[in-house]
Design a protein around this nucleic acid. Structure first.
Lengths: 226, 226
DNA sequence: GACGCGTGTTCACAATTTGTTCACATTTGT
DNA sequence: ACAAATGTGAACAAATTGTGAACACGCGTC
């Protein structure tokens, strides 16, 4: 499944050239020649990247850019003719990601395309649960107490994260197995106990304000003490 | 992705003022106060423009200009005190691009900066990730440690770049395959391991402040040690 | 087209870490 | 006190990663 690129340029030669370059580089392309067509094609084709000329019939590039931005944060590279005054501020406000001046060579263009695609997949924020002096970062797989790293195996960390994500809630062993180990775990429920013990060994006495509590005949819970 | 400007002036007030103006205008700046510092900063900071005072401790502006010209054709604007005799011929020979007489006002300065960048066809900035003594330039496909080139194949470089672009984040092998190899990679996830090993072989022991860490049952991450 | 060369990928096996189970001790509730 | 549930340490099993070498592939050269 190749990455799809929508090419919007009223100059048919440039359009063709772009198509050639990109398809040779393994991208899937669709070409349109005016602003209105760009918008309808955008909805249908769902490109991962848009190459957008500024000077267009119907609706100009800026407006197309703005419309697309209302729908999606797909990367957009604006195409400008040499000599055309490029108002980069305006482009920035409208959400363009890069500019390429015509005429361009294939190498530079492809480099820009790759760069923009790379830049856009900015991974999201870390997922962290905290309470008091304890924080568990499931994105980095780091546990900290008072900003000191507490080393632990992934499963323990996941278990702690799971408990902390619903503080004070009592989880049965089966719930924990389902939530942390996955539905398909076939083993002994006592496995949970061992992991709990190891967590306790690591976290024991590090705070007065929380602990991992046993709930008899039920399971365990992460207790927050007011 | 701001344009980087290196400011070289021994007068701390002027330096500060320039920094203020430029950063307000969206440039990224670095300030140094003598010629020697200018040259080392130039290598590390890789500015898109240099503002260079002529009267400097250590190495004077002309010589700094000449040294920089041996390395790069980055635009250089010379700063001269009013009344200072400006040997424009000499400047021309050395490759300076413009002169600004102190004191200057912000508007004029910014106009000159923009003009010079435009004239130089402002080659778009490289995309670089750095940490401590390590930098990876994905535009040039160059990796440096302490400004020394570390040769490595493109895939390894891309992998390193990807890891470094989110330091400390644990990536699963699948995430790395998607991000570096592309969604359409059909091969074995263990491929990542081999590239990691080769990276480690190359980077091993080059710094105490970072390394590539295994996150068990998860994947790998580029660890920055505070 | 044949040939090397540098890369990228896969594979097999070793090394390591983690996950699980077990047996027995201890605690809890009735 | 008794049965059931949980705590605990150690042994064991399984999964994961490290590693060297072989293989495959594209690319430019001859």
């Amino acid at each position: 499944m190749a990455v799809r690129v929508l090419i919007v340029d009223d100059d048919k030669n440039i359009n063709k050239l772009l198509k050639l370059y990109l398809e040779k580089a393994g991208y899937e392309t669709e070409c349109v020649f005016d602003g209105r067509a760009a918008l309808t094609a955008f909805g249908r084709f769902e490109p991962a990247l848009v190459l957008l000329d500024i000077m267009l019939p119907n609706i100009d590039g800026w407006d197309v850019c703005a419309e697309i931005r209302k729908l999606s944060d797909v990367p957009i590279i604006m195409l400008t003719a040499r000599g055309e005054t490029v108002d980069k501020i305006r482009g920035l406000e409208l959400g363009a990601d890069d500019y390429v001046t015509k005429p361009f060579d294939s190498k530079e263009l492809l480099a820009r395309v790759k760069a923009v695609l790379r830049r856009k997949q900015a991974p999201d924020e870390d997922e962290i649960v905290r309470y008091d002096n304890l924080s568990v970062n499931i994105t980095r797989y780091e546990t900290k107490v008072n900003d000191r790293l507490i080393e632990m195996p992934p499963r323990e960390l996941e278990l702690l994260y799971y408990l902390m994500s619903n503080p004070n809630r009592a989880f049965t062993r089966d719930q924990l197995l389902d939530g942390v180990w996955g539905m398909d775990f076939e083993g002994d429920a006592r496995t949970v106990d061992v992991h709990i013990k190891r967590l306790r060994d690591k976290l024991n006495g590090l705070s007065e304000h929380w602990n991992i509590q046993t709930v008899w005949r039920v399971g365990y819970r992460f207790e927050m003490k007011a």
